[in-house]
Amino acid sequence: MSLPIVVIGGGLSGLYAAHLLEQAGQRVLLIEARERLGGRILSRGHADDRHRLDLGPSWFWPAMNPLVAGLVSTLGLDAFAQHTQGAAAIEGPDGQVHRQQVTWQQSPASYRIAGGMQRLIEGLQTRLEGKVHILTGTRVASLKLRPHAVELDLQDAFGAWTQQAAQVVLTIPPRLTAQDLQMEPTWPPQLVQQMRDTPSWMAGQAKFVAVYPRAFWREAGWSGTAMSHRGPLAEIHDASDASGETAALFGFVGATPAYRTGIGIGIGIGQDAVTRQALAQLQRIFGEQAGSPLWTAVQDWAEEPLTAAASDRQPLARHPLYDAGTVPQAWAQRLWLAGTERSANAGGYLEGALESAALAVQELLAQRSRTPGTNASEHERTLP
């Protein structure tokens, strides 16, 4: 039996790459270090909630994101425009709230997915079931280039083992690649430094969500959109479902990862304090009812070692400039790079995750068609 193509990383980019490869008739193994799939896509709700709150990315823009829009359509998912009807709030450094009668509109309009962005992950996972072998809870320690394969050293709950791959699609962020993966032969120091210098998008960010019995802010003429110069939430939006029946607000936490978590300074305020401060802020802006949510959640991505490298815990001054990246010539026939940080056109966005995966798969398949005999027999622990 021929060796599989191994996709490293079970986020949106990795799942999409595995889907495209499977559709092209390839044998695929997908490896994910987390126990769950999705990477930075994470949606949470109570057991009886059909609407889930996005603790990672929330939006896509159909007018600018044709790949995401196409995938939403292919998977049969429902999307709806971000709620912006009503007044916006601007909170000054002193906590004074200023009402702006009309909320600023995004152009083009941003959309959310009914049931949470995780529906993209679940939809792709369903399409891969029985076709692609998926290993979660499995870390890749090293990649070793062999004459006719790439050898992966893996670690799971049962111990260390190896897997041979015909080719590899690597979708984890560049910084984590440089920090956590050993390459044999080693990559040039300049190339490794370039990866270390590439920020992982939103890896230092935290999000706060609060769910309420009803959207009381809408009843008071607020859209749920607010900007704050005081915090802890720097930017707030309505996170309710399309009908408004499941009422929710979410905000991006403006405080630094060091202040939140204590990483690098010793003691941070912690998630309980973030929650208390966020609810106090929502009360200042939207009234007393904001202090009595049904439930809340904080997702601090800076605390996730499978998302944030140590250098990702510094605030970003601007949106990074991403590019497709390069691999050393010796690896050019065996390894392709994907992931949102590998997209020059849409880096940092869901569109970038899909775009880079599609390009990597296209180039990999083209190489396979040009080079016969790229497979070798498997040995040691193999796929079922």
Rank of each mutant, 00 (worst) to 15 (best):
A302H: 00
Q283W: 07
Q289A: 07
A160M: 12
G45T: 04
P384I: 11
A17T: 00
I172Y: 01
I269V: 11
E91H: 08
L67A: 11
R36T: 13
A239L: 09
P173L: 08
T136G: 05
S200F: 02
D153E: 15
E288Y: 04
L77G: 05
R112N: 02
S2H: 10
P305L: 08
A33C: 14
R342N: 14
W222F: 14
H98E: 09
W61S: 13
S2A: 12
P189T: 02
L124I: 04
L249C: 03
A358D: 04
G268V: 12
A87D: 00
M183I: 09
Q82K: 11
R313W: 09
E219N: 06
A89K: 00
T171P: 01
A376P: 00
L359M: 13
V140L: 04
A206L: 08
Y16V: 00
T198M: 15
I269L: 13
A290D: 05
A141I: 12
P93K: 04
E303W: 06
G270P: 05
E129K: 11
P173W: 01
A166G: 13
R139Y: 13
S2L: 07
A203S: 06
L75C: 04
R119H: 04
Q118M: 14
R276Q: 14
Q125P: 08
I265E: 06
R334D: 03
A203M: 02
A226V: 07
E363I: 05
P189W: 04
